[in-house]
């Protein structure tokens, strides 16, 4: 029964695991006991909280957990983009998908999950930025507002360089420079936003609003990763020409993509553990 108790949150186990194990040694284990322990584990994740440092420390843990998940999603997104290379050019991929419909189905599922996670990322991120800026304005915190200003400038510069880059004939040196600058601006902007959020002293009740996007993002990442692995296996067994073509980049991109997705998912799960469900929604 020890493995079942491992499903409970670490902090809960530190407090009750030993005495519960002692009790289980005397108790007759039935399927009802196993089911009850599973429900108990879910309940403990949702409701049990015991943090010594009080609410402000809890809020800090939740905030850093959220930031970890959001950064993990960026890494995951980069991996997802690399994986998409398999479907390029689309007509050839669609032709293979029509022969093996499961390939197309799994690919569509990954794309849909990615869209869901992106929308959640946007909603949760904008909410955090709004709360952070509001706190910066009311508390007259110049360091927060300064970083918000940097993020806005970077966003404008990104839009300008990206549009300019798209209008420039490809391939050209200018086009490549513009795209490089666009990526640089988005990276600097993201760092500025992260620093802004990291410096904001949120109240725990505010962070609860980001709970749903955080869960959607994490779940989407986990399911997408599993589907991506299934997708690669299906491609290798049914349509290997999509990966093992003369274009060596395909193999590298698809494998690197899955590795990035896996790393992103691991970081997100660490973020969930750090500022977990139990911390985020407990009273």
């Amino acid at each position: 029964m020890h493995w079942l108790l491992r499903l409970y949150p670490r902090i809960w186990r530190e407090r009750y695991e030993e005495e519960m194990l002692a009790m289980l040694e005397d108790h007759k284990i039935t399927p009802a006991t196993v089911f009850d322990l599973l429900i108990g584990a879910v309940d403990a994740h949702l409701n049990y909280r015991r943090v010594e440092g009080g609410k402000s420390e809890t809020a800090n843990l939740v905030r850093s957990g959220i930031l970890m998940i959001f950064w993990a999603f960026l890494l995951f997104g980069a991996g997802g983009c690399l994986l998409q290379r398999i479907a390029d050019p689309m007509p050839i991929f669609q032709q293979e998908a029509s022969t093996f419909p499961a390939i197309g189905f799994v690919f569509d599922a990954i794309v849909i999950l990615g869209c869901m996670a992106s929308v959640s990322f946007l909603a949760g991120g904008l909410l955090l930025i709004y709360m952070s800026v509001r706190r910066g304005v009311t508390g007259k915190q110049s360091d927060i507002l300064k970083r918000f200003g940097i993020a806005i400038v970077c966003l404008i510069l990104f839009a300008v360089t990206a549009v300019w880059g798209m209008r420039t004939p490809q391939p050209s040196l200018l086009n490549e420079f513009l795209m490089l600058f666009a990526l640089l601006f988005i990276a600097v902007g993201t760092v500025a936003v992260s620093q802004m959020i990291a410096r904001t002293e949120f109240i725990l009740s505010e962070l609860k609003w980001v709970f749903i996007p955080k869960i959607i993002i994490s779940l989407s990442m986990i399911i997408s990763l599993v589907l991506a692995i299934v997708f690669i296996i299906m491609i290798i067994s049914h349509a290997p020409q999509l990966i093992f073509s003369q274009d060596m980049d395909r193999q590298m991109f698809s494998m690197t993509g899955v590795i990035f997705m896996a790393l992103g998912t691991i970081f997100a799960s660490l973020g969930l553990r750090r500022g977990g469900i139990d911390l985020a929604i407990s009273p």
């Binding site: 006991t33 009850d36 599973l38 429900i39």
Partner: peptide
């Protein structure tokens, strides 16, 4: 009472 419910 099962253990999960008891400790909850």
């Amino acid at each position: 009472l099962e253990p999960g419910t008891l400790y909850g």
